[in-house]
Design a protein around this nucleic acid. Structure first.
Lengths: 357, 357
DNA sequence: AATTTTTTGGCAATCGATTGCCAACTTAAA
DNA sequence: TTTAAGTTGGCAATCGATTGCCAAAAAATT
């Protein structure tokens, strides 16, 4: 993806001579009062005469005063900032989570600092350390796929910074968590497939070091058991969690003597898309000869032909939930916090790719 | 999009008694040296004996020291942070821009603070003010669609904060800008349609208070002129910039006595999708009876049937360009900055929706 | 051995806002 | 008129890291 052409046009500009920012001291000096009064007036304290307060505010506005948050933060020991670490910002699920969080934090006057781990553990550790350094009030994280320890998360707690894990969580760490009930959603999806008459249902798995993918597999297995269907090793494909890997896995599956009649791409809708493309190439009709179910409700699943059955994780409202969790449970109280786990039940969206009937 | 069910599980946890963070003074006291030496050692200054330095670093690590960036920032007057204001985070184009920026800023040890204006002017002003308060080093902005003044952007400059506008820019403000050559891209797209044999090409316009949409219209007009085609008012639809509005406009267009044989959805691929859906509903075959061209190269355009011709804006690399611009031109020098405009030429991606031949 | 130069590291001011404490002043009550 | 209660606002310490300036110590030079 190269840049075809970059024409650069220069425009001369006259820059103003850099004047210093106005501080509360400047305002105090001008009005011949103490800086403390200015500070109190600006923070709307009741300990300052309404008339004086009005005068201060007016002067502050005139002098174009903007609070130096760095100084305030230092003094107050908090910077009203939440750090977010996600594998990738530009992935529908995560950007929705962030958008949802921002919606809440904005109203509370908090800022979000965003970091992406790019699915790499080392980089994730780095991001977390940066955020610790920044003394953020809270770190919200969904861990990278690459396997690694979680010392860095313990560090967060040791530094007395709130920690909320979401989606991909480290189970053994006792922190606040906001997760989806992956097992139940998977189980429902597979049950739905079975009820539609599919008998040989294949599973595309994600990296099993991540809880969410283990849980989705568990849901698959439990649905098969519940309906008395055999668990067939040959129908379960490891690490098929990109579109390309899924396409490859699908080709293998469909060339079996006894191929599956449905594929549950438990990893993502991108995988499901890979399946659909291969099926289309091979002239296999979906949903009649092959049922396909994805995961995440990416926008495109609605517009493929046929549209793809998938699982909506309520990502935007999940982001809101995370932010609200911080404000309700963690902003003020600082002792005896009992980590809560909030499990949100995703919703199965039945579309054409699995409607045989 | 409601949450179906939320089960909340409480887990009791024993919290450590909150000990204070270690500061350079703690380290200094422990080693019986001055805090200034600790500071110098930690910033790897040459003015401290290598042996002492090593000792200090070792002790710092042992004491689990993490720099208090707030204090450092206050003293240094810079916080190595770039603020980003976009209409929406969870929109492919913008999240890619942010991802691209983060890629660069991460390596430079800078942080990104993200705000979304939700296309509202008042909220944008608010975001900008917050960022000014935060004393960010630079503000990167793509303005909201809602019409409004740009005093807030002047404020940014008045506060001596770097300002980079991208994509949707206020032309008359002399700041650094990173834009796409919308006019040229549009012109190319329309020329392509004409070359494919389409004669009556309709235009779906975005809000004309935004430069980018005016430019795209300009490109449309110039292509028509260049090929000697008449400009027909009835084929230009104002404010058709969501999927729904486009669908509506398309229905009107296609019910004309003399309907268009191609539609250029200059606003976005979502609009193009609206067009495609209506055409499909009406049994109008694409590309034979109707050509469709979108804008932005959203991921889904590749997988619709037929796939949609669109314009790729190199969003990820555009994000990188923005960040690099800051580091190359604005990080150090503070006088005589000549605002540059970088124009990136988008690429027309011809797909099936316009291949008549 | 005496002097100059270079290293090393301490002191204290600084960044700007906040806040506990106390003094001066106003108002109300005795 | 005096005392008590309530307002208003100033002083100065504080948050923690940084850095200019200077002195002590070490090394190099004469």
């Amino acid at each position: 993806m190269a840049i075809d052409c970059q024409k650069i046009i220069c425009i001369f500009a006259i820059m103003k001579t850099p004047q210093k920012r106005t501080t509360i001291y400047d305002i105090a000096k001008k009005l011949n009062i103490a800086a403390s009064s200015v500070s109190r007036a600006l923070s709307n304290s009741s300990k300052v005469n309404p008339a004086t307060k009005a005068l201060i505010l007016k002067t502050a506005a005139e002098m174009n005063y903007q609070q130096n948050v760095m100084a305030s933060n230092l003094r107050k020991g908090s910077n009203r900032t939440i750090g977010v670490v996600v594998p990738r910002i530009n992935q529908g699920y995560f950007s929705n989570i962030i958008a949802g969080m921002e919606d809440i934090t904005y109203n509370k006057g908090y800022n979000l600092i965003i970091c992406q781990s790019n699915e790499l553990h080392a980089r994730e550790v780095d991001c977390v350390n940066t955020l610790i350094n920044q003394h953020v009030n809270c770190i919200v994280i969904s861990i990278a796929a690459e396997q690694g320890g979680h010392e860095h998360l313990k560090q967060v707690i040791d530094h007395r910074i709130r920690l909320i894990q979401f989606d991909r969580v480290v189970d053994e760490l006792e922190t606040f968590k906001v997760i989806n009930d992956n097992e139940r959603a998977s189980s429902e999806a597979v049950s739905h497939l079975i009820e539609q008459g599919y008998q040989r249902i294949a599973l595309l798995e994600g990296p099993q070091n991540l809880d969410i993918f283990r849980q989705r597999k568990e849901g698959y297995l439990s649905a098969l058991r519940k309906h008395g269907l055999p668990v067939l090793e040959e129908l379960m494909c490891e690490n098929a969690w990109t579109k390309e890997l899924s396409a490859e896995a699908t080709r293998k599956l469909l060339s079996m003597k006894n191929p599956p009649d449905a594929i549950f791409a438990s990893t993502s809708d991108f995988s499901a898309l890979g399946v659909l493309e291969v099926a289309t190439q091979l002239g296999i009709s979906v949903p009649d000869q092959l049922g396909i179910c994805g995961y995440s409700n990416e926008p495109f699943t609605e517009i493929t032909s046929p549209s793809i059955t998938t699982i909506d994780q309520h990502s935007f409202s999940m982001g809101k939930t995370i932010a609200n969790l911080y404000f309700q449970e963690m902003e003020t109280t600082d002792l005896h916090i009992e980590p809560k786990i909030m499990s949100i039940k995703p919703k199965l969206l039945v579309r054409k790719s699995t409607q045989k009937l």
